[in-house]
Design a protein around this nucleic acid. Structure first.
Lengths: 212, 212
DNA sequence: ACCTGAACACCGTTCAAGT
DNA sequence: ACCTGAACACCGTTCAAGT
């Protein structure tokens, strides 16, 4: 936890931002720090640990929303914050889906989602599941977006699914350019609608069977 | 497209299955094929292309569901098939979220989802978005699952979010073991409920404003 | 069409040693 | 506490050459 470790992580993240994840080598990192490759190992156990520390630093960036705000706004803010991390560091984004991240900052992030979902009135036993559903979607969307998994290139697209009945019927919709910000907001709003639906089902049914 | 290329991909996938993604090196692959490293380059342009071909092979495995089946069943089958790929090849699974995959097999998979969503009555202009929402979730879930992102280890879990209010309120729910198959089915059913909700909203509102 | 052999410019990590 | 230097066992990929 020496002060130097922070410098190492800052340099590592800068390297990834500038030149991509593949360019992050212990040797390149050492060079950027003006030091021998082996000197890096004083501050980080090995490359795996370096990547984990990087994820922790990424997750630690956003500040959790005010717990007194309405739960819908909190969920929207948390989703936007998760996506913003990937946008701020597109090259590092794939790491977000790569590790358990049990660090305290990651736990704090999850906890903020738990609190928002609890405030919605969702039954306690459904909260962890919906948290995983939500954060899996948010991370998956953001990583797909910056990683180019969604990027339907302009020219190949027209002929892409020609023989496919679904693509043919959707030709017009698929030809239009996509507003990714708008799509993400619509998705998050849909997930909020889903939460509301589950809450409504719970209160409809007063003999709620729990457990076993 | 020579017959040998298939052997190369089969060997590559076997290598990944047995020894992990990191063990897939051009040299190790060559050795498994009983050949010089450079001989592999006759059948695959470079390592990137090898990985892309591997993704295509993974996606090509499942057969699309019978188009005459009810759309809900089709969606469930497609989701299960996507998840099954990750379970069959856990070491290769991370590749699924790593590339655009515009190959014809990937397009066929997406098209089957399009067809199911169109059959649900979802408005045409919402179908691509809900397809992305759905497949992002399915792939994200499956990859997280086999990659250990969800795996809350047994002992660290009890004390994991101690200071966190959300975790504290959920202590009982978080202590219970998770049925991942059941959770996935519940998630897919929830997404189906969401589709139904969007369909209902569309027909409620007869002045559907579209476009611009 | 398919494969080899030597080489180049890299990796992560170990060990023993220095200050 | 922090860093160096040499070494080991690897990488992906090029080029020129062979059959």
């Amino acid at each position: 936890m020496s002060g130097r470790r922070d410098e190492v992580l800052t340099a590592a993240l800068a390297l990834v931002d500038e030149r991509g994840l593949d360019a992050l080598t212990m040797r390149a990192l050492a060079e950027r720090l003006g030091v021998t490759p082996m000197a890096v190992y004083r501050h980080v156990a090995n490359k795996e640990a370096l990547l984990d520390a990087l994820v922790d630093r990424l997750i630690g960036t956003p500040t959790p929303p005010d717990p007194s705000a309405p739960w819908r706004d909190r969920l929207r803010a948390l989703a936007a914050a998760g996506r913003a991390i990937a946008h701020a560091h597109p090259n590092a984004a794939p790491l977000l889906l790569r590790r358990p991240t049990r660090t305290s900052r990651a736990v704090a992030f999850v906890d903020a989602i738990y609190q928002a979902l609890l405030a919605s009135g969702l039954p306690v036993e459904a909260v962890p599941r919906i948290e995983r559903l939500t954060s899996t979607f948010v991370l998956g969307y953001a990583v797909s977006e910056v990683g180019g998994r969604f990027a339907a290139g302009p020219d190949p697209r027209a002929t892409r699914g020609d023989g496919q009945p679904g693509h043919r019927r959707l030709a017009a919709a698929l030809a239009a350019p996509v507003d990714w910000d708008g799509e993400f907001r619509a998705d998050v709003d849909d997930l909020i609608s889903l939460v509301e639906l589950l809450v409504a089902r719970t209160s409809d049914d007063d003999s709620v069977a729990v457990g076993d």
